[in-house]
Design a protein around this nucleic acid. Structure first.
Lengths: 150, 150
DNA sequence: TTTTCTGCAAACGATTTGCATACAC
DNA sequence: GTGTATGCAAATCGTTTGCAGAAAA
């Protein structure tokens, strides 16, 4: 069974577990993440909804993104471009350990996977007593395309 | 000679080098970073200025922080708390490689130094052709104090 | 004297909130 | 029915900008 089907089917359960209700708006917004798989801002999601003739308001999108993050279904990320972005939070540790290469020229965001940080995290916990539950790594530079176009 | 004195004395030169003028406002704002040494937002800097009976306006603070970052004297960092923060950019690679532990409970930011990422960066360049010029690493979790208070 | 800088206030874009209505349970 | 969710518009918050006067070169 793919992780995608799992998330949508499980949405009602995860919501009621926390006292929230299932609504078509929430389902539709989650579906967009499942189908598009990227890191999207509230405005991005709203734009897609409008293309689909959906009448969901922008405030509802913001509230749904907050809620889905709180439930651990989405994770919020920030590329420093002035708006919060979200992506599906799969439980798969291989995906949990993906980081971002952000091109300073074309603003493209490239994902890569690397679990070298596990050692580093263990090291930090030992040394400082800081218990790490999540991390965020961003590399800024120039992608191969932009370098070739120079 | 300490890095601190160097920065203030060199400010005029770095400014004129790029066609900018030396002003008491710019000097005063840089001095605040030299004396306080933390990661401060525009609002933080503005508050300190007001405590010092300085009449510098908030817009000027924003413009100075931008400018000092452009000159490489400050670096902008972002802890996801909704406002941009800045800190002194020393050329010392030991300081360049400092990262941040952000406590999810008390919001404290702890700095630590670690150069393990050099290998990782070389690895990424080899594999993807992405040329890295800077990186930003944040670990989210619970500091030892908050863990003890549970 | 020429250009850049400042301070103010207005503009801005992303996000949040108050409220009356509509819907899920 | 009861309480939560929605949509709209207004409010908010950090940040940027236009402009007239002030200051640096």
């Amino acid at each position: 069974m793919s992780g995608q089907l799992y998330e949508l089917k499980d949405l009602r359960g995860k919501l009621s577990e926390h006292g929230y209700k299932m609504t078509p708006q929430r389902k539709e917004i989650l579906k967009i993440f499942i189908e598009h798989k990227g890191h999207m801002s509230a405005e991005d999601v709203y734009k897609i909804l409008r293309e689909q003739e959906s009448e969901i308001g922008l405030a509802t999108v913001y509230r749904a993104l907050d809620l889905l993050s709180e439930l651990g279904i989405l994770v919020q990320i920030d590329f420093g471009d002035g708006c919060a972005r979200y992506e599906l939070n799969t439980a798969d540790p291989k995906i949990h350990h993906h980081h971002h290469l952000i091109c300073l020229k074309c603003k493209k965001v490239i994902e890569f996977e690397e679990d070298l940080l596990d050692d580093l995290e263990a090291n930090i916990s030992d040394k400082s007593g800081f218990q790490i539950v999540n991390h965020e790594v961003k590399f800024f530079g120039y992608c191969s395309e932009c370098r070739n176009n120079e």
